[in-house]
């Protein structure tokens, strides 16, 4: 029992470390792409563009930990595919994230919605691929299942 609760705490802490890493990587990518396009390349604006990603990832990781706790502790005999729940949540979060970040880029960089949408989509695709690779490497070294 103690080990199980410790496992969930560790899973949540790892997710938070993932989010911090992701926010740093996202800020660097945003800054790089903005300077490439001769837009405002300040760190503050780049961080603000990544704010929806940070908030949504935090919500998702809390939800995931909650589901894992409910499914594996309260209903151990239940037949639920955890991956489907996570993937559907991730896809919907990607859409919400893209739109929120697009509106932020449109507001902060004062660019057209079209350009902002392409800019954000490019950042998010790079960020999601990098975070996926990071999660695989992290789970490989820690010996934990890829939770996030």
């Amino acid at each position: 029992m103690i080990f199980q609760s410790a496992f969930f705490s560790i899973a949540l802490i790892i997710s938070i470390i993932d989010i911090i890493t992701g926010s740093i990587i996202g800020t660097i990518i945003t800054k790089w792409l903005a300077s490439k396009k001769n837009w405002d390349s300040s760190l503050k604006v780049a961080f603000l563009v990544n704010l929806p990603w940070i908030l949504l990832s935090l919500i998702l990781s809390i939800l995931e930990t909650f589901y894992i706790r409910v499914i594996y502790m309260d209903f151990p005999f239940i037949t639920v595919n955890m991956h489907i729940i996570v993937i559907v949540n991730l896809l919907i979060a990607f859409v919400i994230n893209t739109i929120l970040s697009t509106l932020l880029v449109h507001r902060l960089y004062r660019k057209e919605l079209n350009n902002s949408l392409f800019f954000v989509t490019r950042i998010l695709i790079i960020l999601y691929i990098l975070m996926y690779i990071f999660a695989i490497i992290r789970s490989y070294f820690l010996g934990l299942a890829a939770i996030s």
């Binding site: 919400i96 509106l103 919605l113």
Partner: peptide
């Protein structure tokens, strides 16, 4: 369009 997609996805 973006706002509609945002509301629908939420």
């Amino acid at each position: 369009g973006l706002l509609v997609i945002l509301i629908v996805s939420i």
